[in-house]
């Protein structure tokens, strides 16, 4: 659904610039998360270091998007779909920045884990990572393509991620009790799982904002039926 152009060309340009920044930020965030987890799984400290360094760029993008968003509100006083898009872009940037922070945290903990021998329980992270990343990609997709159904479908999947997190935590606690020498390691893993669960929460927020932008429907904080 391509909307016709605004009569004011500068308005279209401003909206396009905002959107591009959001897309750039989301791909940088995705890369950070990817690197952080790869840094963990492949025990590569360079990847972790890169992740931590790139956070700066993502933070600056958040500031830029907020600034541009306020600028558009000020200059063009958008209404209806335009207004929703601008407001969602600003909210998205906040969620993406937090996700990138989670990636940084994962990278820090991965570095700590890499100093010690590998733990087999690292495997618990992989499915969580896959699920969280798929949620993230779908939520961004829903925003970009204004796909309301896709956005709505992302929300219940958070339940699954929470479940995976609970399972992983229980397992790691068992291991901590059984093998106290590796306590630090297991603790770090537990935190990493927690960070991934938070990534899922943020992806859910992004999906909810995407639905709002596309359909003017606020689907937050609703009691939902657990997905099959």
């Amino acid at each position: 659904m391509i909307a016709p152009k605004h009569i004011l060309g500068t308005f279209d340009e401003a909206l396009a610039s905002l959107r591009n920044n959001v897309l750039m930020m989301s791909s940088l965030t995705e890369r950070s998360l990817d690197r952080a987890i790869q840094g963990l799984l492949q025990r590569d400290d360079d990847l972790c270091a890169n992740t931590i360094a790139d956070d700066e760029e993502i933070d600056q993008l958040e500031k830029q998007i907020d600034k541009d968003g306020v600028d558009v509100l000020l200059r063009f006083q958008p209404v209806a779909s335009d207004l929703r898009r601008v407001v969602s872009a600003m909210k998205l940037s906040s969620n993406l920045e937090r996700m990138a922070d989670q990636a940084t945290n994962i990278a820090r903990r991965a570095r700590k884990l890499n100093r010690h021998p590998a733990l087999p329980e690292v495997e618990l992270i992989t499915p969580m990572y896959a699920h969280a990343m798929s949620m993230f990609k779908d939520s961004i997709d829903a925003y970009v393509r204004e796909d309301v159904e896709l956005g709505r479908a992302v929300v219940p999947r958070d339940e699954k991620l929470d479940e995976l997190n609970r399972v992983a935590s229980r397992r790691l606690i068992q291991r901590m009790a059984a093998d106290p020498d590796q306590l630090r390691g297991y603790l770090n893993l537990m935190f990493i799982a927690r960070h991934l669960e938070r990534v899922g929460d943020h992806a859910t927020n992004i999906a909810e904002d995407a639905v709002y932008a596309a359909a003017a429907e606020d689907i937050r904080h609703q009691p939902f039926v657990a997905s099959a």
Partner: peptide, 18 residues
Amino acid sequence: IFTNPSERRTEDYITGRF
């Protein structure tokens, strides 16, 4: 009307698309 109009033409007018 100003947050979520039903008609395409309304939306186009109020957002300054025509």
